[in-house]
Design a protein around this nucleic acid. Structure first.
Lengths: 219, 219
DNA sequence: TTTATTTTTTAGGCTAACCTAAAAAAATTA
DNA sequence: TAATTTTTTTAGGTTAGCCTAAAAAATAAA
């Protein structure tokens, strides 16, 4: 088993999130931006991760995760999302309060702990933001979700995730009643500014293009 | 609020455990031994902790915790013991499996998390080894427990704690049925080697002096 | 009370993860 | 294609926490 430090794990996770399907190589600057650090520091770490066979790194060409690196990243994401479920379901945290704490908890290293936690939580499929939880073998099923902005008039679906995780955004959704599990129907699309008029429960409301892009629907 | 690193917290906790009542100053070597590190490293850290007003440090004279240092240590112990209860009560860990994991979890820093956890667990008074859990104000009530080795013939009491926390010892207790909450009665004391003959449930068994010294009884 | 031993501290070095400033490579624009 | 801009890397330095070896202080023994 390769051991990874707290910091190395954060790099792996960042690389994963920046290119979940390995569609393209991730740039040094993008990682620096994601981790709020400097490009020079990223270069240092990329060399180390490459030595450990966790990433494929070619100077000036960006990086992709190796199989090992990807599995490590998925393992951390599994822990992050299970802890989020625990905080919301068992400790009554709100969905916008759990991210930072889960960022710490995800680095606690014990397969037995995390597998027991999963069982205790009843093997949840998704975290409080609708993101899927990888299973203990590292298999991550990305559900096919479309943003509200891509839906057609009269189409309906269940709110199943969000693309943006900021407290500001989640608070807005909460206040508006746009929470996970709700059924929405698109009533009209305003071409002028991209805003969308939707039916939610018995009410009708208008959301901006920015909001519509960040609410994900299972259709 | 003073922020403390992972390592600083471990030093504070070690100092606390080495002199819980501040009866006497703790020596550099004792800390090195407890933390499996070298005396020179301890000296480095003691200077830092003294600068932060967490310990009273006089060169060559050992250390005691300041009020702040003691409160910090108690806060970490509170977290450690609540996590142990969680692992045993909710995730079905055995009492001898939880210590190392709690050593990591105790450094997660969130008052809201730990207070919610405490409520979720039903405000337990003691951890799975019978050690008392400090309250959220940092008040730690040490119960008066006596080792079996100090009991008199015919005296009875409830097993309420252990002095030794090693897996080897806890496993032995488990196997023998000497677990928390059991009532025991001292039937005889063997002066020759200090072993003790006790009644437990309907059986009678003999325990060595070493074992008798490490089982704590509320009388 | 001098000598020997033990304990503790200082001095100087190491590694991980960060930084700034400068150099080199790649990408873009003219 | 040449010149400019952007991105990335290298070079050299910092801090936290650790180390070994040597010096200094405290304690114990002769």
């Amino acid at each position: 088993m390769i051991t990874t430090s707290f910091t190395e794990e954060n790099y792996l996770k960042a690389i994963f999130h920046l290119s979940p399907q390995e569609a393209e190589a991730v740039s040094t600057n993008a990682i620096a931006e994601a981790l709020q650090t400097k490009a020079a520091s990223v270069t240092d770490m990329l060399k180390k991760l490459a030595d450990k066979n966790l990433i494929n790194y070619v100077k000036y060409q960006g990086v992709t995760l190796t199989h090992n690196g990807r599995q490590a990243a998925i393992g951390i994401i599994r822990k992050h999302r299970l802890w989020e479920v625990f905080l919301v379901d068992k400790l009554n945290f709100k969905w916008d309060e759990v991210h930072e704490l889960a960022e710490d908890l995800e680095h606690i290293n014990s397969a037995k702990l995390i597998d027991s936690l999963e069982a205790f939580l009843g093997f949840p499929k998704v975290d409080p933001h609708g993101d899927p939880i990888p299973d203990k073998n590292g298999v991550l099923k990305e559900p096919i979700l479309v943003p509200v902005s891509k839906m057609n008039i009269n189409q309906t679906g269940i709110i199943s995730g969000v693309k943006e995780h900021s407290t500001l955004f989640l608070n807005y959704l909460e206040k508006t009643g746009l929470v996970l599990g709700k059924r929405v129907k698109v009533q009209d699309l305003i071409e002028f500014d991209g805003s969308v008029i939707i039916a939610l429960d018995k009410q009708v409301l208008t959301i901006s293009r920015d909001v519509a892009k960040n609410i994900l629907i299972a259709v």
